[in-house]
Design a protein around this nucleic acid. Structure first.
Lengths: 233, 233
DNA sequence: GACGTAATGTACGAACTAGTACGTCACTTA
DNA sequence: TAAGTGACGTACTAGTTCGTACATTACGTC
């Protein structure tokens, strides 16, 4: 027991714990940076929302920018873990790709803060990510997984489109990302709440149909009717 | 002629011109807000980059937030004009939709500042757009156009998917938007520059193929192979 | 139980930032 | 050409915001 009446008013039982303090700062900072962006977030506000003080932010993270980079690193680490624990090898290629798209969809759905951080980081032209070796020096399990499934699908003759893994990942990500990142302007301007739970399954299914449909399209690479493309411009 | 030696050092020929001053402020402000986001943009910096002073920003726009809203309004007005001058009625539905997708693609390509403004506004949960009646009280020509083409395509039996205009618009926009908005993190993390001119045509074609392919898919609504969907989760 | 160090809190400062008070000038109109 | 008003510039302020100097306390170790 700590001496009664001597510790902070917040929690008489609170003990010194570096890891807990660091983790708490990181958690609150993630929320603040995600909600207000890098420039809009306030170090004082982050400190106020923790059980500790601003001093600790500088003690453990060294400054606002370094804290922000730490937030990005932990956010990306989380999705890497999720991607690595994804097992679709036992599925047939079509089911595997659909599952992969759905998992990506669900991950964006359940991690809006991550989506907002990525948006913010793109406003800053990925300059902070570029400073982090932990983020740049890393292979991407999602791409490898997609590449494996794509190859299997082609060998079995069910995938006809000649799309590569990175482009397919972009196709999937763009749909998932936009629905979460741009829901506010889209909802305001088009009167449709993209993240309405009642419509969520519809969009998940739609994504799967589009991805699978594209990969298995009868025309194969290029889609066949590319005549109008050049004619139109 | 103005009295020599009396006017500002910058431009001896510069005359008073309210419209020009307002337009210049708006142009520079658009760039600054797009580059640094709302919180990151600096009123002093905007003023410094114009031929006029900060006083004029407050004189004409009333403050940082009102200036930002004016920037959003002018940016959206520009794309509305582009959308309204889009004539695809003379094309067959498939060509019309492909053209529409390509025009959307090209617009995002050529207006990265607009894309960045939308990203920024979503970080702020579209609160500024919501304050602008000029932005909320407006029908969207793009949606109407898509709806018209969709209906024509269904009547002629070439479109089988039961997607609605808003969802189709989102599908097209998500691809175009992501490629421009997220190119920095994507490029850094996946080593692929999405906006590389050498790859631009590839992505434009890819988008058209996906959209047309989805609309004309043999399976029709739902894509047929939805069995694995439920099985996988 | 003394001691050294990691962990933590308080108070403050320098620089920045949005916004404004005040004054001047140019151009139109009668 | 005189006057009135819209357009414009300078200099300043109040509040904010990142960062830090300095002091203190808890906890492991011997």
């Amino acid at each position: 027991m700590s001496p009664p009446g001597r510790s902070t008013a917040v929690d008489p039982e609170r003990r010194r714990d570096a890891e807990r303090t660091k983790a708490e700062i990181l958690k609150i900072a993630t929320e603040e940076f995600a909600q207000r962006g890098y420039a809009g977030a306030r170090v004082d506000e982050i400190a106020a929302r923790t059980q500790t003080t601003k001093r600790m932010i500088y003690y453990y993270f060294g400054g606002k920018e370094r804290l922000y980079i730490a937030v990005l690193e932990s956010a990306y680490a989380e999705i890497r873990v999720a991607e690595q624990s994804l097992a679709v090898e036992h599925l047939d290629p079509v089911s595997a790709i659909r599952t992969l798209a759905e998992v990506t969809f669900d991950h964006h759905e359940s991690h809006p803060d991550f989506v907002r951080l990525v948006s913010t980081e793109n406003i800053h032209r990925a300059e902070h990510i570029a400073k982090s070796q932990a983020l740049t020096n890393l292979t991407n399990p999602a791409i490898d997984l997609i590449a494996t499934v794509l190859e299997a699908g082609r060998e079995q003759g069910v995938f006809t489109a000649d799309i590569d893994a990175v482009d397919l990942h972009m196709l999937i990500s763009s749909f998932c990302f936009f629905r979460v990142a741009n829901r506010h302007t889209f909802g305001t301007l088009f009167g449709r709440d993209l993240t309405d739970p009642a419509r969520r399954d519809h969009y998940r299914q739609m994504l799967g149909d589009i991805v699978v449909g594209h990969l298995t399209s009868p025309g194969g690479a290029g889609g066949g009717t590319s005549g109008p493309t050049t004619a139109a411009r």
